[in-house]
């Protein structure tokens, strides 16, 4: 083997892609030729340097939390793909179907319009001071079970399929968080249900933090149209809460209280504006396993 032959297959030698016999020829040649020994050493060096340079470069490294983001999407995708247990209603007689829908719609509308929107706002409370069934606890439970554990009993549906009043919330949240939470990305915007409460749920993913913005009709105990943002703490999360029109907004994360509050502050005015624009129309949304029904009325 001469030096030219050696150099032609030097890379394959380094990649361990040569036949054993050819490998022996290479080794024999190197024993006798210092120039080719240098060439092999140099090529090995360049590979090592190339590998370490690429792996160390931030350009080729994904953002922190990338793996978590991937898993989140896969899990949510799984939720979306769960069979929705749809049975055809087309076989039913149209009158029976319409009558059934009307009865359910009327009953649900009565419930919707009887929501008590009065109450008093709270500040700096622990979530544990509130009853398990309070909207505050249910919201933090939804954050845990939906955004973190992905184990809700019912798979989420899109915002558009959920309560019509919440359509477009994702645009507002994305825009307002682009500065205060620049390192977070909106990974989910859907409507989900936890303990019989349906939330508009927007999930932001940042480095080592998942933040939920949850919007639901106000509850009796805590809900009121209060200008202030109330802060709460649970062993795991920081929660900021404020009211907009007939809804309560929760911002839940593991961020420091200050940062979580800042995120809520960034949303408060734009969300109030958003809901004020929709004030003229009230929509009640009813959903069963086989149908969805929206009822609109002027306020």
């Amino acid at each position: 083997m001469n030096c030219r032959d050696f150099q032609e297959i030097a890379d394959s030698y380094l990649s361990d892609e040569l036949l054993t016999e050819t490998n022996h020829d290479m080794i024999r040649h190197m024993e006798a030729c210092s120039a080719c020994r240098d060439i092999i050493a140099a090529r090995r060096e360049i590979r090592t340097r190339l590998r370490s340079a690429v792996i160390a470069s931030p350009l080729y490294r994904p953002d922190e939390g990338f793996e978590h983001l991937l898993l989140t999407r896969i899990k949510h995708d799984l939720g979306d793909r769960k069979p929705a247990a749809r049975t055809s209603w087309f076989g039913l007689r149209p009158f029976a179907m319409a009558a059934g829908l009307l009865v359910v719609a009327m009953l649900s509308f009565v419930l919707f319009t009887n929501l008590d929107l009065n109450g008093s706002a709270s500040k700096n409370y622990l979530v544990s001071n509130y009853a398990e069934e309070s909207l505050l606890n249910i919201a933090s439970g939804d954050h845990q079970h939906c955004a973190i554990d992905h184990n809700l009993q019912e798979p989420p549906v899109s915002l558009a399929e959920g309560d019509g009043r919440y359509a477009g919330l994702d645009g507002v949240v994305k825009k307002e968080f682009s500065t205060v939470l620049a390192d977070h990305k909106l990974v989910e915007a859907h409507s989900c249900k936890f303990k019989d409460v349906t939330f508009a749920h927007l999930v932001m993913q940042g480095p080592n933090n998942t933040l939920s913005v949850l919007v639901a009709p106000s509850d009796k105990e805590l809900g009121s149209v209060n200008e202030k943002i109330a802060e709460f703490a649970s062993p795991s999360y920081r929660i900021s809460k404020f009211d907009v029109e007939k809804d309560t907004v929760f911002v839940i994360s593991t961020l420091q209280s200050e940062k979580n509050l800042k995120a809520a502050e960034a949303l408060a005015v734009p969300l109030r504006d958003h809901f004020t624009k929709r004030k003229g129309v009230q929509t009640a949304m009813f959903a069963g396993p086989y149908y969805k029904f929206a009822f609109h009325r002027d306020s």
Binding site: Q7, D38, I39, A42, R43, E45, I46, R49, L50, S52, A53, V54, A56, S57, L59
Partner: peptide, 18 residues
């Protein structure tokens, strides 16, 4: 032509060459 590997090049040089 084929050149041998230069020494004392930085990671940035390697990435720029790549």
């Amino acid at each position: 032509f084929e050149a041998s590997v230069p020494e004392r090049v930085t990671d940035e040089d390697v990435l720029a060459a790549l």
